[in-house]
């Protein structure tokens, strides 16, 4: 069978589907000072599955932690229009479960084009393999 670390190199999704892969990728992102990208990506996935009674509070928590401060790594990588859309949704009593979808897609794009290829070339990954 293919060892997990070779699977990680197939696609970002293969990497994010494996606990150990996530751990190593997160360590790499911590070194680079951008672990928030990964945490935000998982927060968006979790948000969709969150029960309705927790959703409004969680939307505020995600917004405050990653988006409201324009100098944060996540906020800097999300388009202005997407941030405005999220700001409008956050104020609603029953936020749409898909309200972070566009932002998640944008952050995934950053990881696919930037941090994920760098990870595969990093000492951390190469030493692991």
């Amino acid at each position: 069978p293919t060892p997990p670390y070779l699977k990680w190199a197939e696609s970002l999704h293969s990497l994010l589907d494996d606990q150990e892969g996530i751990q190593l990728f997160r360590n790499f992102l911590c070194q680079e000072g951008c672990a928030d990208l990964l945490d935000f990506w998982f927060a968006c996935s979790g948000f969709r599955k969150t029960s309705q009674e927790k959703r409004a509070k969680l939307a505020k928590a995600i917004y405050r932690k990653y988006i409201v401060d324009g100098s944060g790594i996540v906020s800097r990588q999300i388009k202005g229009a997407t941030k405005s859309f999220i700001r409008d949704c956050v104020g609603k009593p029953h936020p749409d479960p898909a309200m972070f979808e566009q932002a998640q897609t944008e952050i995934q794009g950053v990881m696919e084009e930037n941090t994920y290829p760098l990870f595969l070339k990093s000492d951390l990954y190469l030493e692991y393999t």
């Binding site: 606990q19 996530i22 998982f42 927060a43 979790g46």
Partner: peptide, 20 residues
């Protein structure tokens, strides 16, 4: 604020793959 952080952590963990 603490409970908001807890909620966020719980949300992130819920989205991670389970042990295989």
């Amino acid at each position: 604020i603490d409970s908001e952080d807890d909620l966020l952590q719980e949300c992130i963990s819920s989205a991670m793959p389970k042990k295989k």
